[in-house]
């Protein structure tokens, strides 16, 4: 994805250029591009007068940031305790099998990114999976197939 410096500047202006707005600005950039392009981080460093290494540190410290391009659909599996005791590990294995990637990876066609998160706070419904911001509670293997098939099919239709 082409990084539009003007867009980055606009985001920065909107938040403010003091260092305290670094994380919010990066989150906004991440929301725009789905990841943090290096050029954008460079721009942030220049405009905010924050050394590049510090921007890089922040980007790699917080799990919300990704410095790699991510897939079109983000599948997040909750690995919180409540989900764990209800079989979150099996869930993530199953999801991984269906879309053919491991947690933290993005499929080669950039359709799916599989991520794990420590707790989504929907513990009562564990195990929980979120696809593109939509929550799916009380998951099990057969439900995984159903839910993910929907996203894959949508893809197929869009292309077919």
């Amino acid at each position: 994805m082409e990084v539009d410096i003007k867009k980055i500047d606009a985001i920065l202006e909107e938040h403010g250029l003091e260092k305290r707005w670094l994380i919010p600005s990066l989150l906004a950039i991440q929301n725009t591009y789905n990841y943090l392009p290096p050029e954008a981080m460079q721009r942030v460093s220049e405009r905010m007068q924050v050394p590049m290494i510090q921007v890089y540190q922040v980007a790699s410290f917080y799990k919300a940031f990704s410095m790699e391009p991510r897939g079109k659909h983000i599948v997040t599996v909750c690995m919180g305790t409540a989900c764990h005791v209800r079989g979150a590990e099996r869930l993530v294995d199953q999801v991984g099998r269906v879309i053919g990637i491991k947690p933290g990876e993005t499929s080669t066609d950039y359709q799916f990114t599989l991520e794990t998160v420590n707790c989504l706070g929907t513990c009562a419904l564990g195990p929980v999976m979120v696809v593109d911001g939509k929550y799916y509670g009380n998951m099990n293997a057969s439900k995984v197939d159903r839910v993910l098939n929907r996203y894959m099919k949508r893809e197929g239709e869009a292309h077919g």
């Binding site: 690995m79 919180g80 305790t81 409540a82 989900c83 764990h84 420590n118 707790c119 706070g121 929907t122 513990c123």
Partner: peptide
């Protein structure tokens, strides 16, 4: 910043 897995009262 309710990070404890299994807690969601703040939420």
């Amino acid at each position: 910043d309710e990070g404890d897995p299994g807690a969601f009262q703040d939420r």
